[in-house]
Structure formats: structure tokens, C-alpha cells
Design a binder for these strands. Structure first.
Length: 574
DNA sequence: GCCGTTTTCGGCCCGACTGTTTTCAGTCG
């Protein structure tokens, strides 16, 4: 069993103990599970060295259980617990508004032990007679089940962000709000979010709550109080808002941005320094005196830390780095000088080369690469060698027309064929300014074969960027199987960059792999993979993903000036 | 079940909101 298996066992134990009404132990198991998941070292090795108790939250009892799992692959204690709790009850906990207490009552009173049975019972109004359950309870639970069924999944960052911004616009259209912002996983830039969290610092919160629930897209008001409200939008997305006094805005923003793990670590640090940290501020424990809270910056400062950007707040080493002054200077959207990956109506894009160039100019870019598909991708109207040669001329002309305002790069997103060869002859590729190579077929290859295929393209001498390197589509398609370390090593030797494809359902490389690329000494090139000029705004999603991967300006080729860029890609051999 | 400048027992984050309860329990974040 690896660390994830062991953590999963502990999470399940926590749920089972919760259902039995056991206090405190569930938190202890969850805390240990979280720390086990984040271990850098191999847990079997820790076990062999008798160092399991070095893991925070793991004591004698849990160390023994981990040993048993490492040795036998099972845990008797878990089997026992499962025997005491009807199977299926854990599943009930996934229904919003059903917690351990409710789940146990439902089982004892009505024998319910699955979501399906619960749904049936609610429809038959069988919850009615039970003490503590009324009409509203049934309605709420039914709503919860419907939510679970319809939106079991999460919402893409690229979808949630514009919605959050629209709601903020609605609030500020008629109210003068000094301090207002997005919190939660959306602010941290996670690739998907479960809901949208908004925060307001204002001394008239009631007006904000009224305005909030009047947003036109609201389908249902889940709760509304003087400082806290929740709504569900027509598309099923839940939005929470919270209001605090202006003097607490920074502390509240920090608190509601999370992550939970980051906050736990931060509060612990605060406690060590004699402070109490909550959503209202940072307080001296003894005197109760407030020492920070209006801004996030001062909260971090008083804790002896450099300001930690939201994208890093995952308790992945950022707190130590902030204390020791070695946080990365993360790449910034303002430093992005161009887009490496844009399609036009020559293949499957919607707009002309001229329109793409104009869109790039209007975004203040210094360069834009025209990268249409290659001949094998028939479905996308991929270019034949002849058409590509013709397109290169067109691109050159567009560049001249644009004058000195922008450099227009002639490029291609060339297919990596199943045998690892490229979809255009080498001589033609050498006429281009920039070549992205991508896998678009035969996704289900065996791992070693796929690795060879991609490495061959990287080492071809014709490629500048590996396009959407893992091929995943968020929530739809898993990455293809290949050895990413091997590909990154080859890319480093060949001077090939990894794309961060910023299309909302790709974000490929993802955050963790961005960090991995940097560790391998490989640069990253952000491309929007735009199929219409509107898509070019997705650049920010790629930047956020790179930031979550701890990347700095120098790690990201989009920050290079046109001149340095030419130098960078010139190394490609013909 | 873990942890300790509160150190081997007694805490463990806690505030907001809802529904049904007539003073509070349960859930969520």
C-alpha cells in the first residue's frame, strides 16, 4: 500500500467513527491522513526505519496500524469498524446537509443505508414522523440529492472566474464597496472549483446581502443572514458571500481563501508566536489586542512571513519558504508579451490571420504565433505542405502590414504520428519560426511505446514546444500513459519547452507538472490554443496554472522580448 | 487518538445559519 492507500483508509475510519458519534478521533485520523498524503518520503521506508511517529499527527496507535497495512496490505481495525456500521452509510455523508448524526438517525428509524433509499424515503414523505424532521428538512435533503446527481462534478476555473467577476460587477454597480474580492479555491486558481466564495468588507452588510440575492442568475436562495448568504445559480453552481467590517477584511480574505491545510499551519504558527488568528484578525492571545486584520499583507507580516500569493497556499512548503525569504517571484500576467498557440480559419479556427493579429495588438502583445493544424488532422482541416507554404507567405505579409507593432510568427501545430515522426517534412518545418508538436491520435498506446513516440518528437531537432503534453481533458479524458520524467529529461537536452495549454478544460501541463518541469530545468511556453480571438483571453488561466507550479518570469518564454525570443528559437537545427 | 513552555491528563477552531427545539443541535466552511 502506498501513502494514498493508507490515507484513504484513515479517511474512511474517520467517517465511520463520525457515524458512531465518536468525538475527536475522527479529526485525529483526518489530520494524520492529510499529513501522510503530503509525505515526500516513501512511507514503507519510514515504517522500516521506525520513524512513522515523525509524521505529525501519528502516534503509537496509528504507527502500529500503518505498520500492519505496510506488512499485510490490510487493517483489521477497519474491517471491524465496517462490520459495526451498515455499508452505504458513508455514502449518505456525501449528500449536502446530511452529516453523521442525520445519517445515523435515518438508518435507525427507517433502515436507510444508501442515497437511493434516502431519495425514495423522502419522496414517500417517510421522514415526516421522525423527531427533529419537518417539511423543510425533507425538501432540503431532496435538493441535496438532486445537487449531488446533477453536479457531482466541479466547475472549471475558466467557467467560474467570469461568473464570479460578473457577480462582483453586479454588487459594485449600485453599491460603493471599498473592499470586495474572490476567495476560496477560485482565488487560489485551482483548475476546478466546487463553489464560488465572495467576500465583502463593508459597514452596511445588509444592503450587500440584499443586492447579492437579487443577482439575475440566482435560481434559489439557500440561506440569507445579515453577514452571510448562499445562493444557487441557474446552472447549479453555488455561490457563498460573507461580509465583515472593513478593519477585518484582510484577515477574512486570508481565512476564506484557504486552503484549509494552509490555514491550519498558519494558525499553529500564530499560536507558537502567542497570537490567535481567526477571520476577524490577528490577536495577541493574552491581551486580546488586535494587531492585524485590515490587509492580508499585514497578517502575514506580523507572523514573520513574506506575503504568500494565493496560488501557493496549499501547505506545500510555502510557509517555510516565506519564513526563510525564499518564496519564488511568481510569473505575472503583465509580463506576458505574446501567445504561442493560435488557430485561424486556415484550419479549424474561426477568424482570419488579420483578425488574430489585430486581437494580439489590442492585447498589447509583442508577438503572436499562428499555429494551425497539420495535414493528418483531416477533421480539423489540417494544412497540406502546399497550403502551409502558402500560409507562411500570408503570415509574412500580415507581419509587414502590422509594421513594427508586433512580430507575427509563422508556425504550425504539427501532429506527432504514431511512430513518433512529424506530420511535415523537416525542410518545410525549418521554414517556420516556431513549431509545436502535439499528439492527437492513438491515445491509448502502451506506456513505453508512447514515451518513445513523444521523446522521438522532442529529439527530432524540428520542435520548439511540446503541445498539451499529457493530453488530459479535465473531467473527460485522463492523461495518456507515458514517462514524464523521461520526456522532461529529453526536452531539457534538446532545448524544447513544455506548453501550458490554457484552454479551460486542458490546463496542460497542470500545476504539479509545471513544478516538475522546472525541477528538470525545462522552460514553459503558455499558449491559448485559441480557435477564435475571444479565446485569447484564456491566457490568464495558463498564467495562474504556472503560478501554482511555482514558476517565475524567467521560467516562462512568454515573458521574452521579440529579440530574445528569436535568439531562443534560433537554436533549432534545420 | 494525539499532544505538551498547559507535559502523562484534559483539551482538541469556531462562528454563522437553519429548522424545529421553546433554548439548541446539526451542518458547513
Amino acid at each position: 500500500m502506498d501513502k494514498y492507500d493508507i490515507a484513504a483508509v484513515f479517511y474512511e475510519i474517520a467517517d465511520l467513527l463520525d457515524l458512531q458519534g465518536v468525538a475527536f478521533k475522527p479529526q485525529a485520523y483526518r489530520r494524520a491522513a492529510r499529513n501522510i498524503e503530503q509525505l515526500e518520503e516513501d512511507i514503507a521506508e519510514l515504517a522500516a526505519d521506525n520513524r512513522l511517529k515523525d509524521v505529525p499527527g501519528v502516534g503509537d496507535a496509528m504507527a502500529k496500524k500503518i505498520l500492519e497495512m505496510v506488512d499485510t496490505g490490510k487493517l483489521r481495525y477497519l474491517e471491524e469498524l465496517r462490520g459495526e456500521v451498515p455499508p452505504g452509510l458513508v455514502e449518505l455523508l456525501s449528500v449536502p446537509d446530511v452529516g453523521p448524526k442525520t445519517a445515523m438517525i435515518l438508518y435507525k428509524e427507517l433502515g436507510i443505508s444508501s442515497v437511493e433509499q434516502l431519495k425514495q424515503a423522502v419522496m414517500d414523505h417517510r421522514l415526516h414522523g421522525i423527531k427533529g424532521f419537518g417539511e423543510k428538512s425533507e425538501e432540503k435533503i431532496l435538493q441535496g440529492i438532486r445537487t449531488l446527481e446533477s453536479k457531482g462534478g466541479r466547475t472549471l476555473l475558466g467557467e467560474a472566474l467570469p461568473i464570479a467577476e460578473a457577480i462582483l460587477g453586479h454588487l459594485t454597480s449600485s453599491l460603493r464597496l471599498d473592499r470586495v474580492g474572490i476567495g476560496g479555491s477560485l482565488r487560489r486558481g485551482k483548475e476546478t472549483v466546487g463553489d464560488i466564495d465572495l467576500l465583502v468588507g463593508d459597514d452596511d452588510p445588509a444592503a450587500v446581502m440584499d443586492k447579492f440575492v437579487s443577482y439575475p442568475d440566482v435560481k434559489e436562495v439557500l440561506m440569507k443572514g445579515p453577514t452571510k448568504s448562499s445562493v444557487r445559480l441557474r446552472d447549479g453552481l453555488q455561490v457563498d458571500i460573507r461580509a465583515v467590517e472593513a478593519k477585518s477584511f484582510g484577515a477574512a480574505l486570508q481565512y476564506f481563501t484557504g486552503s484549509k491545510e494552509h490555514n491550519v499551519a498558519l494558525r499553529r504558527l500564530g499560536a507558537e508566536l502567542g497570537f490567535k488568528l481567526n477571520e476577524y484578525g490577528l490577536f495577541e492571545r493574552d491581551s486580546g489586542k488586535m494587531v492585524a486584520g485590515a490587509t492580508e499583507e499585514e497578517v502575514y507580516e506580523k507572523l514573520g512571513l513574506r506575503y504568500i500569493p494565493p496560488e501557493l497556499r496549499e501547505n506545500n512548503g510555502e510557509i517555510d519558504a516565506a519564513r526563510e525569504g525564499r518564496l519564488p517571484e511568481l510569473v505575472e500576467q503583465e509580463r506576458v508579451r505574446g501567445d504561442f498557440h493560435v488557430h485561424t480559419n486556415w484550419s479549424d479556427g474561426g477568424d482570419t490571420i488579420k483578425e488574430v493579429v489585430a486581437a494580439a495588438v489590442s492585447r498589447g502583445y509583442e508577438f503572436v504565433a499562428i499555429t494551425d493544424h497539420s495535414q493528418s488532422l483531416r477533421i480539423a482541416n489540417g494544412l497540406s505542405p502546399e497550403r502551409l507554404a502558402k500560409q507562411i507567405e500570408e503570415v509574412r505579409k500580415a507581419g509587414e502590414t502590422a509594421g513594427g507593432r508586433i512580430s507575427v510568427l509563422a508556425g504550425s501545430e504539427v501532429d506527432i504520428k504514431a511512430d513518433g515522426s512529424l506530420d511535415f517534412p523537416k525542410a518545410l518545418l525549418s521554414d517556420l519560426d516556431i513549431v509545436i508538436a502535439s499528439v492527437h491520435s492513438r491515445f491509448k498506446m502502451e506506456k513505453a511505446e508512447m514515451t518513445r513516440r513523444i521523446v522521438a518528437a522532442v529529439e527530432s531537432g524540428s520542435v520548439d514546444i511540446l503541445g498539451h503534453p499529457t493530453g488530459r481533458l479535465i473531467g473527460q479524458r485522463v492523461p495518456y500513459e507515458f514517462d514524464i520524467d523521461q520526456v522532461l529529461d529529453a526536452a531539457r537536452s534538446a532545448g524544447v519547452a513544455m506548453e501550458v495549454n490554457s484552454f479551460p478544460d486542458r490546463l496542460d501541463l497542470n500545476d504539479a507538472n509545471c513544478r516538475l518541469a522546472k525541477q528538470h530545468g525545462v522552460k514553459v511556453a503558455i499558449g491559448t490554443d485559441s480557435h477564435s480571438v475571444d479565446h485569447m483571453d484564456h491566457m490568464r488561466l495558463g498564467v495562474i496554472t504556472a503560478r501554482r507550479g511555482w514558476l517565475e518570469n524567467e521560467d516562462v518564454l512568454n515573458t521574452l522580448s521579440g529579440k530574445d525570443l528569436a535568439k531562443h528559437f534560433h537554436r533549432r537545427t534545420a
